[in-house]
């Protein structure tokens, strides 16, 4: 596939309009907001025409996105996405990668989130008739594999013809967009600050992508605060998100 064709596919797959089920997941952000770890919004209102002067929490959101991008996606998910892309024609290898993600993801809520988003994405591609989607879904339905997000992304996007680096770009950008979108819906920031965070994170994203992904055997994830928040999520009274 031409670079432009692959870029176009990446735009479509990374677009928040693409129905991959990611909209319902905050990956710990909702609990952190509820526990005021992202700062608190002011109780008192301010004078007219002073919009934007309220306490700006974009730095806290940016730090959360950076943590997720650097210490969860880049060092863990990316390794399995890339390995799945290379093993897209080898069902046994894909299932082995899926099993590794399952075994290495400590928090139940993270495992469940990765499985459910992966299976949602796969379901859309089954409906679209994307090659390789239906057979992999059969294995999930049969209980022989889990359908974790990075494995499904690697499989499906390789079958669509997306270039290896475009897959990583789409996955990383989709993660950042999803987190910032969740922050907007949680009332943490407005639409302009959200885009500012996405713009500010781009140099880091490109720096990370500039280096080769690690191998699955070297994969690691370390986001303790977010993981504890994810684990505490199920006991929260108010829950807009699934984790």
């Amino acid at each position: 596939m031409s670079p432009l064709g692959s870029s176009l596919l990446a735009l479509q797959q990374a677009d928040s309009f693409f129905p991959g089920g990611a909209v319902a997941w905050s990956w710990g952000l909702e609990t952190l907001v509820a526990d005021a770890h992202l700062g608190t919004s002011p109780i008192t209102t301010i004078g007219r025409r002073q919009r934007g002067l309220r306490h700006d929490r974009s730095e806290e959101v940016r730090a959360f996105v950076e943590g997720q991008l650097r210490h969860r996606w880049n060092s863990f998910d990316r390794a399995f996405l890339d390995a799945a892309w290379q093993a897209a024609d080898d069902l046994q290898s894909l299932m082995l990668l899926d099993a590794q993600v399952e075994a290495l993801t400590l928090a139940e809520e993270l495992r469940q989130g990765s499985r459910r988003v992966g299976q949602s994405l796969l379901g859309v591609h089954v409906a679209l008739g994307t090659p390789g989607a239906a057979p992999y879904q059969q294995n999930i339905l049969a209980g022989t594999t889990s359908g974790h997000l990075p494995v499904v992304q690697g499989l499906i996007w390789q079958k669509l013809g997306m270039h290896r680096d475009h897959c990583q770009l789409a996955a990383a950008h989709g993660l950042c967009t999803g987190l910032v979108s969740a922050a907007v819906r949680l009332g943490v920031m407005g639409h302009v600050d959200a885009q500012r965070v996405l713009t500010d994170i781009q140099p880091l994203l490109l720096e990370l992508l500039d280096e080769a992904p690690c191998a699955p055997d070297d994969a690691s994830g370390f986001t303790p605060m977010a993981e504890i928040a994810v684990m505490r999520h199920e006991t929260q009274n108010l829950r807009l998100f699934a984790n």
Partner: peptide
């Protein structure tokens, strides 16, 4: 009940 306003749009 999940509806909220952006503080970039309104003061109150």
């Amino acid at each position: 009940l999940a509806s909220t306003f952006s503080l970039d749009l309104v003061d109150y």
